[in-house]
Amino acid sequence: MIIDLCVIPMGTTASVSGYIAECQRVLEGTGLSYTMHSYGTNIEGEWDEVMAAVKACHEAVHKMGAPRISSTLKIGTRTDKSQTMQDKIDVVNELLNS
Rank of each mutant, 00 (worst) to 15 (best):
E59G: 06
S15I: 15
K88T: 07
Y19I: 04
A56E: 05
N93P: 12
K81N: 11
V16C: 06
S70H: 11
P9G: 02
M10A: 08
S71T: 15
G18M: 01
K81P: 11
C23I: 13
A52E: 11
G31K: 02
I2M: 05
A56L: 06
P67H: 00
K74D: 05
K74W: 09
S38V: 14
N93T: 07
G29A: 03
I75V: 13
P9H: 02
M85K: 01
L95S: 04
H37Y: 04
Q83V: 15
N42L: 15
M85D: 11
K74P: 08
T12A: 02
T13F: 10
A53S: 08
A56D: 03
N97A: 05
A60P: 12
G40R: 00
C23F: 08
M36F: 13
E28F: 14
G65K: 01
E94T: 03
I89F: 11
K63C: 10
Q86D: 12
V7C: 04
T41N: 01
T79N: 09
M64A: 05
P9E: 02
P9W: 00
E44I: 15
G65H: 02
S17I: 09
A21I: 08
I8C: 09
W47S: 14
G31W: 09
G40H: 00
S15G: 14
K74N: 08
N97S: 05
S98H: 07
K55Q: 13
L96H: 07
T72R: 02
A14Q: 15
K81F: 11
T72A: 02
G31N: 07
N97I: 05
E49I: 15
M51R: 01
R25N: 07
S98Y: 06
V91P: 06
G45E: 03
M51G: 00
Q86G: 12
P9T: 05
V16H: 07
M85L: 05
D87E: 10
E59L: 12
L95A: 06
L96T: 06
E22L: 09
Q83I: 15
R78Y: 12
A53W: 11
I8V: 14
S38C: 14
E22D: 06
M36H: 13
S17T: 13
K74G: 09
M36P: 10
M64G: 04
C23L: 07
